[in-house]
Structure formats: C-alpha cells, structure tokens
Amino acid sequence: MQKLINLGRGTLDYIAAIGSASMMLFGALFAFPTWKNTRLMVHQMYVVGVQSLLIIIVSGLFIGMVMALQGYTILVSYGAEGSLGPMVALSLLRELGPVVTALLFAGRAGSALTAEIGLMKATEQLSSLEMMAVDPLRRVLSPRFWAGVYSMPMLALIFSAVGILGGHLVGVDWLGVDSGSYWSIMQSTVEWNEDVVNGVIKALVFALVVVWIALYKGYHCIPTSEGISKATTETVVYSSLTILGLDFVLTALMFGIS
C-alpha cells in the first residue's frame, strides 16, 4: 500500500515538474531579449558559443577524418571510393553534426549553465534579484536560453563543415580519392532542404531541449554543493538521453517515409 502511495506521489511530482518546466520555458520564450538584454545575450553567446568553438572544431575535424578513413577502406573494396564524399557529407549533415554537437554542447555548455545558475541560487543572487524587483527569468534565464538556441545550430553547421573538410583532407589529400569526384558526387547527392536544412532543424530542437533542461535543473536545484553537483550530472544525463531519443523520432519524421 505504502509503495502504491509513493508511486502515485512520485508520478504527481514528475508531472508537476514537467508543468513547472514548461511554464519556465514559456516564460523564457516570451521574455524575448529587449535591447538591454541583447547585450546580455551576446555575452552569453560568448560563454556558450565561442567557448565551445574549440572542442567543436577539433571533434568535427577528427570525426570527419575518421569517417573518411573508415569509409575509404570499405568503399574501395567495391571500387566505389567516389562515393566517399556523399557518405561523409550525409552522415555529418544528417546525423553526426547535430547529434555529436548537441552531446558536446550538453557536456560543455549545459553543465556549466546548470552549475552557474545553481550557484547563483545557492549564494542568494537569484533571490536578491527578485528583491531588487528584477525578474530572474528575464535577466538571467532568458539571455542564456536564447544564446544557447542561437549558438547550437551555428556550432552544428561549423561542425559539419569542418568535418567535411577533414574528410577531404584524409580522403583526397592522403588516400588519393579524386578531388573532383569528392565534391561533385557530394553535390549531386546532398540536397539543401532535405539534408542541410533538416540537420539545422534537428540542431535547433536539440538546442532547445539541452538549454531547457540545463536551466530548469539549475533553477530548481537544491542549493547545496551536493545538490548542484547532482543537478549538473542530471543535466548531462537527461540531455544526452533526450537528444538520442529525439534524434530517432526526428529522423523517422524527416527521412523515414518517402
């Protein structure tokens, strides 16, 4: 009986958490940056975007290079190494670009957001904002939210572009695939709407989810060192799982049926 009660209470807590998270999301969405907040947003874009740039570029480069190497060894045995370009480009644009960027973003920027907001809560900075008649949602959450939503797709685009260049480096410059066929077969296969735009949409959705989870976890963490560390871990775990699950759903919607 007690177990049943606990289950019911747990479920209710969970639904309430979803409710308050949604309310926060809408709050942040509609608290669209005013001119004053645009500068805050630019600063946050520096924190979540520019500071994630290095890890994104390096990972993109290596993933592109590894894919070219792996793809080449398989394709060459069918005499189809000309298809290396589209293979690298499509995997990056459709899947690896958005997904890996989002996972890295969750680990690099999401956790930092949670920790920062959690710490602001623990040191009463959020309360103090409230008492100064400044809405923390508007002043603290919204700029971070929008900065994340803008930065992530840009990071994903940079990731894919760098990956394709990395694939070119290994496939063409080292393994000797013809440069012309690398690009031209890629061009005839890759579609702007189908592949590039869908990839960006994926990245946008992932960004929304990661930033949302990160901000919610930070804002509602238990303001102790233990609570913040737990919230940070949860941000990374929940974001990663949600990204992978959503990726399947989005892929099925975009590429599954046609």
Partner: peptide
C-alpha cells in the same frame, strides 16, 4: 513596484560574482 521601495541585505551579501 513595491519591491523597488524595499530592499534586502542577504546573509551572504549575494553580490553578483
């Protein structure tokens, strides 16, 4: 509006770090 007329000094100071 009311809060603009009151202010609070938190235990930790709560300065923006």
């Amino acid at each position: 509006e009311l809060r603009r007329r009151m202010s609070m000094l938190f235990q930790s100071g709560a300065l923006f770090t």
